[in-house]
């Protein structure tokens, strides 16, 4: 498919005989918001692992960008530098470091060790960090250790770090888990805002949250795509209902 930012086709992977992903194909365009739903064990996290290079598939292709570069030969760091950002299910920020340091580390700059060794703080970076902190509502927390933040704040910090990387594709794993309704609201708007300029894939359990995202939905089941379309379309699908409600 032309114009796709990420093209996953025919990917399979198995762990000790268990097929976690089974001939999965998936495409997403350059500025698109997509929700991926599916029951436990459907392969949502493994799918993300494959795209971000954590897991190598047994077969299939994963192509990226206009030049259709294969991601399978790249390691995690190279994939991240190519423009794919990932937010984990549990908030993983560097708890021992301040919110500012966390954001500074994520800023899109040269990542090589020698370059980083001589990178010192400058006004432009500071301004960008302030701006990001404003977006995620953590301006007053910039100097605090991120380990002291509340759960929701950590989630936002992680989203902020993702945005700081300025990726072209954002993979977000259950961003709203454990959040209060107001925090969810905020998270929704952050994601919708982000999807104006880049592709965002949200993995989520919570149908209500998905509905609020108001986007195309892909349903995974047993490592393959079961249905795709608007939320109303897929929830009307008989197979999807069976999968969710049990046989």
């Amino acid at each position: 498919m032309t114009g796709a930012l990420l093209e996953v086709s025919g990917v399979s992977v198995s762990f000790d005989g268990f097929r976690a992903i089974n001939n999965l194909s998936f495409n997403i365009g350059p500025a698109e918001l997509r929700a991926v739903i599916g029951p436990n064990g459907a392969g949502k996290t493994t799918f993300m692992d494959i795209v971000t290079g954590k897991t190598r598939p047994d077969e299939g292709r994963v192509l990226w960008g206009e030049k259709s570069i294969s991601l399978l030969r790249m390691d995690e760091a190279a994939i991240a530098r190519a423009g794919i950002g990932r937010k984990f299910q549990r908030p993983t920020v560097f708890e021992d470091q301040t919110v500012r340091d966390n954001l500074l580390m994520a800023l899109k700059k040269d990542r090589g060790p020698l370059a980083v060794l001589f990178q010192r703080r400058n006004a432009a970076d500071e301004a960008r960090v302030e701006e990001l902190a404003g977006q995620i509502g953590l301006v007053s927390e910039l100097s605090r250790k991120s380990g002291e933040l509340s759960h929701g704040q950590k989630q936002w910090l992680e989203i902020g770090m993702l945005l700081a990387q300025d990726p072209r594709l954002l993979l977000v794993d259950e961003p709203a888990a454990g959040m209060t309704p107001e925090e969810r609201e905020h998270t929704t708007s952050l994601l919708v805002e982000a999807a104006r300029t880049r592709a965002v894939v949200v993995v989520e359990h919570d149908m209500e949250f998905v509905r609020r995202l108001n986007c195309k939905v892909t349903v995974l089941h047993e490592g393959a795509v079961l249905a795709e379309g608007s939320l109303d379309h897929v929830t009307a699908n008989q197979e999807v209902i069976e999968v969710y409600l049990g046989r």
């Binding site: 971000t52 954590k54 390691d75 995690e76 760091a77 190279a78 991240a80 530098r81 950002g85 990932r86 984990f88 993983t92 920020v93 560097f94 708890e95 021992d96 470091q97 340091d101 500074l104 580390m105 994520a106 990542r111 090589g112 060790p113 980083v116 060794l117 990178q119 010192r120 703080r121 770090m161 990387q165």
Partner: peptide, 25 residues
Amino acid sequence: SGKFGSVLRGIRDNEARVRFLGYPV
């Protein structure tokens, strides 16, 4: 002291996360 130190401590505390930030750990 600088960002390099930040990355080092990041590697100590969560190597995988640093890698997903794009740093060649």
